[in-house]
Amino acid sequence: MKIKIYTALLILVSSASQAQTLLTENFDTFPVTWTKTNQSQPVGTSNWQQGNVSSFGGGFNGGATSYTAVNYNSVASGMSGTISNWLISPIVSLKDGDVIKFYTRAGANFSSTPDRLELRLSTVGSSTINPSTGSSDLGSFTYLAVSVNPLLAPNVYPVTWTEYTYTVGSLPDATDCKLAFRYFVTNGGPTGANGNAIWVDALTVNRVLSTDTFFKSNFSVFPNPTSNVLNITNNSDSAINNIQVTDINGRIVKEVKINTNQINISELNAGVYLLKISTDNGTGTTKIVKS
């Protein structure tokens, strides 16, 4: 019977999850910690830049210029060629299950001119080699995570802000990485048949955490087991909004809806319970024992 109780408890603890934000970039201003390199051939004067006020609206999160943009002038004036223009993030630690999300749209109210965007990863952190020898050079960014309009077809690139996501795989351990947006268009440029302009906004990288992992990262409780008062140490940067104690059947047997560092469980029967603490940053759950 005890084995069944503890098994049910573990299932309950591990079933819910939180998200830890590893990286956020809303491009409200152009990020000085990012690197841009235009490897287009023949190379033009244009590069990734802060968004401009236009009749096509502003960034995904609002703000007339709150996005980053790049266009066909990546290739030299009066020429056609291959656009390969890169915007590279600072180091972010990634592992399997992390979710990369961003929004993009064509920089106009039409998409008949073919455009393409790639999201690529370098998995060597500070040893990353940036592309430097022309349009075919990938540097260390050999891992293609997302390709928007991979076939470079007309009328495909979205004309409204559209979400794209990628769930990290093949990184079982936390690994220092860099992300790169690559504006990649063949037969592009001022006189090419392809390539107009694209915008990017609202990049986030999130890690899904089990509620027990969230708890261990933010709280500790003592003494455990206890016969009466359970003390709570809050190591997070957010106040406690709610504390619940539930039995193994999921029934709430004690609840405190204030910011406190103690909860008295003296009236509960001896046994195993779940303690759930909720904050603005997430909810954590751990096992407690009433003696």
Rank of each mutant, 00 (worst) to 15 (best):
I277N: 01
P114T: 05
P150M: 08
T191P: 01
S84F: 05
K290D: 06
S227L: 10
V124G: 08
P158C: 09
N155W: 07
D115N: 12
S140D: 04
L119P: 02
G58W: 00
Y103W: 09
Q39E: 12
L151Q: 14
T279I: 02
S170Y: 15
T286V: 03
R207L: 06
I288A: 01
T279E: 12
P158G: 01
I240V: 10
T113S: 04
K290F: 02
T285A: 01
N71A: 04
I258T: 15
T68E: 07
W34Q: 07
T167N: 10
L119V: 09
G169R: 13
T260C: 07
F30E: 05
G97Q: 00
S170V: 15
N259W: 13
I5P: 12
S112M: 15
I265A: 05
T82L: 03
L144R: 06
E118A: 06
P42F: 00
L22I: 05
L121Q: 04
Y157D: 00
L144E: 03
M79I: 09
I288K: 01
T68A: 09
Q50V: 09
A16D: 11
F141E: 00
L138S: 10
P90N: 06
G44V: 03
I100T: 04
N196R: 14
G58F: 02
Q262L: 11
S136F: 13
N242Y: 05
V32L: 15
T213M: 13
R207G: 03
S210R: 08
N61D: 13
V92G: 02
V205A: 02
T233R: 10
V146S: 05
S77D: 12
I243S: 06
W86A: 02
V208L: 14
F27V: 02
Y273P: 06
I265T: 05
R182E: 02
K101R: 14
L274A: 09
V146W: 11
S14K: 11
A76Q: 10
T104M: 03
L10S: 15
I3F: 11
L275N: 01
S66M: 08
L203W: 06
A19D: 13
Y273I: 08
D247Y: 07
F110H: 12
R120K: 07
T24W: 08
V92T: 10
S80L: 10
L12T: 14
G192F: 02
Y183R: 05
A108E: 06
A8R: 13
A106I: 11
W48G: 05
P158T: 03
V99R: 12
L87V: 12
L151F: 12
I232P: 01
G57S: 00
S46W: 08
A64L: 12
L121E: 01
T123C: 09
S93V: 13
E267R: 10
D115R: 04
P31H: 04
N38P: 07
S89K: 01
D176T: 14
A270H: 15
L171W: 11
A16Q: 13
I5G: 15
V272Y: 14
T133M: 09
T226H: 09
S266P: 03
C177N: 00
V245M: 06
F219D: 04
L94Y: 01
D212R: 05
N26H: 13
G139T: 03
D173G: 15
Y6G: 11
L9N: 11
L151R: 13
V99M: 12
D98C: 06
G282T: 00
K2F: 15
